[in-house]
Amino acid sequence: MALLEIKNIDVSYGKHVTVSGCSIDLEQGEICSVVGESGSGKTTVIRAVLGLLPGGGRVSSGDIIYDGRSLLQLNKKEWRALRGHDISMIFQDSGAMMNQTRLIGKSFVEYIRTHEHISKQDAWKKGADMLSRMRLPDPDRIMRSYPFQLSGGMRQRVGIAMGMTYQPKLLLADEPTSALDVTTQAQIVRQMMELRDEYGTSIIVVTHDIGVAAYMANKVVVMKDGHIEDQGERGYILNDSTNAYTRKLIGAVPSLGGKRYV
């Protein structure tokens, strides 16, 4: 059985449908890339999986099944238990997704204590341990820093470390490398792939960078104007697909880390 099944969903804002008829299946340990230009609805889809559609958006038809149960039926408490525990999300700039006026350690503690009844001291230690397990240098210093004091790459690695605290079965990554320079990009991409290899984490990575998508994924979904234009195994999309839009995207491939992955 698939870990996640997005079944023919529409996402609407009021009467306006922004994403329509979108279906994606994801197996345990699989990495799926969703590619498309900005405004194609790719971020909306993974936001919908986590029930975090911005500004009054809602899934107006279809269903999202995670681990055998419909996410659309969850109540607030069930959502909270799921988010950050079974399903984690990392963002384009994970540092910006933390309160800028609080120490990273404090945000980390707040997060851990949301999911576990442990003391603040223990939570702090667990957070620092998590950072060092993700091979971040000097975890104590990071815990005592504010998000804006770290570099973009470091912030992103902290975001991933946080997201991996409870070894979620599913990791949703929203443009995780777009804000980074090429070398750091490669580092983050590799780290995410290691997560899959070590913990069997399934990953959906949303990106406009087809180089990153192709390098990481087993499966690629191409989105355009709110619908799925093309999808299939990596090899099929890269080599065999006859879809004109897919071909156009691949034709415009940028390189990653100085070398072409496609």
Binding site: R80, A81, G84, S88, M97, N99, R102, E110, Y111
Partner: peptide, 20 residues
């Protein structure tokens, strides 16, 4: 953005509001 971040981490709404 951090409000979305906190929600994505499962932090309760009242904690987001009064703590952040």
């Amino acid at each position: 953005d951090y409000v979305i971040g906190a929600r994505a981490r499962g932090v309760a709404e009242w904690k987001i509001l009064w703590g952040n």
